[in-house]
Simulated assay, not measured.
Amino acid sequence: MSGYLDIVRPAYGENSLADLMPSVSAVLGVPGAEDVLALGATLGDVDRVAVLLIDGLGVYQKEAVARLAPIVAELDARTLTSGFPSTTPVSLATLGTGRPPGQHGILGFTVRKPGGGVLNHIHWGKDPDPALWQPMPTRFETAVAAGVPATQVTQPSFQGSGLTVACYRGASFVGAADPGALAEGMLTALKGPGIVYGYFADLDHHGHGTGVGSPDWEAAATTVGTLLDRLVNGLPPRAALLVTADHGQLNTPAEGRLDLSLDAELSAGLIGVAGEPRVRYLYTEAGAVDDVLSTYREKLGSSALVLGRDQAIEEGLYGQVADAHRSRIGDVVVACLDHTVVLASACEPASAGRLVAYHGSLTAVEMTVPLLSFVRPSN
Rank of each mutant, 00 (worst) to 15 (best):
L28V: 02
G29W: 08
G29R: 00
V30I: 11
P31M: 08
L37W: 04
A38C: 06
L39Q: 05
G44S: 05
V46H: 10
D47Y: 01
R48A: 11
V49I: 15
A50Q: 03
L52K: 01
I54W: 02
L57S: 02
V65K: 03
R67F: 02
R67V: 12
A73W: 03
E74P: 03
L75P: 11
L75D: 00
D76V: 08
A77D: 13
L80P: 05
L80K: 01
F84R: 10
P89Q: 11
S91F: 01
A93T: 14
T94W: 01
T97D: 02
P101R: 02
Q103M: 13
L107K: 01
L107C: 11
F109M: 10
V111R: 00
G116V: 09
V118H: 03
H121K: 01
I122S: 03
I122G: 00
K126A: 14
D127I: 14
P128A: 05
D129A: 13
A131I: 04
L132P: 00
Q134S: 13
P135C: 04
M136P: 04
P137D: 09
T138K: 02
E141S: 11
A143E: 12
A150P: 06
Q152I: 15
Q152E: 08
V153C: 06
V153E: 00
T154I: 06
P156D: 10
S157I: 12
S157T: 11
F158Q: 13
G160K: 08
T164K: 03
V165D: 12
G170K: 03
A171T: 07
